[in-house]
């Protein structure tokens, strides 16, 4: 049976992990390679790196980081942030990234999804969508939720699937940072409406939030950052808990 995936998300800038990470045994919390390796040891099923490097000139450091991670890591990983062209994506693929994630670049230029899918296969293309509930509708947002678009979330995701997205990473900006649980209603609606895997993101605070999202929705994976980075939810403990609820996990 296909396991539900647990995915820690790491923010990286200029090739270094940012945001405080509180692991025992970690010599350098800013070293994405060591951090990634630790997560793999803990039983993370996959990792997502979100590159928040501000300038295009510094992208070279990201490529070097991806290579270092790929050399050490024996589980798949995705890299997102700043990818606006097939050439950007190809450089990351050749450096060992398993998937790339595109967000605002896909909204501004939807053809990028089909171009990437044609060039590298749909399994390589994750479309990340930030959604916020506005006046009774779920609307796609850009710039971390600050900029509303004219796209309704459900419509955009269907469109992205038809263009060749291989997976959807859906972040509820209303739930993100609240630690009050995932947006199960929307996630279930989306997971039922499309035929590609969905990663739930935004709102994880306690272990039962993961149980909820897997029992109440058809999502394939759940992503979180701070609850993992600060050791609030150790991944092995989380997986045992999910298993108790008969949720298929990799132990």
């Amino acid at each position: 049976m296909l396991s539900k995936r647990i995915i820690p998300c790491l923010d990286v800038k200029d090739g270094r992990t940012v945001k405080g990470v509180n692991f025992v045994d970690l010599k350098d919390a800013g070293d994405p390679v060591e951090l990634a390796w630790q997560y793999a040891q803990q039983g993370a099923d996959e990792l997502v790196f979100l590159d928040i490097t501000a300038t295009h000139e510094r992208r070279g450091t990201t490529i070097e980081m991806v290579k270092s991670v790929a050399r050490q890591l024996n589980i798949p990983f995705t890299i997102g942030g700043g990818i606006t062209s097939v050439a950007d994506a190809e450089a990351l693929l050749n450096s060992g990234a398993d998937k790339i994630s595109i967000n605002s670049a896909a909204v501004r230029n939807p053809a990028l999804i089909s171009d990437l899918a044609k060039a590298f296969g749909v399994q390589f293309v994750v479309v990340a969508v930030d959604t916020k509930f506005v006046e009774g509708r779920n609307m796609v947002h850009l710039n971390g939720g600050r900029l509303i678009t004219e796209l309704e979330t459900e419509d955009w995701i269907l469109h992205a699937e038809s263009l060749g997205a291989g997976e959807i990473l859906l972040t509820s900006m209303d739930h993100d940072g609240t630690k009050n649980g995932f947006d199960c209603l929307l996630l279930d609606k989306i997971a039922r409406s499309i035929n590609i895997p969905v990663i739930a993101s935004g709102g994880a605070g306690r272990m039962e939030h993961f149980t909820e999202v897997f029992l109440q929705t058809g999502v394939d994976a759940a992503l979180a950052a701070s609850v993992f980075h600060f050791g609030e939810i150790p991944i092995p403990v989380l997986k045992e808990e999910l298993k108790k609820h008969n949720i298929p996990v990799r132990l």
Partner: peptide, 10 residues
């Protein structure tokens, strides 16, 4: 089933 088959399977 969702396609691609993506993830960890026994």
């Amino acid at each position: 089933i969702k396609i691609p088959h993506m993830g960890w399977n026994n």
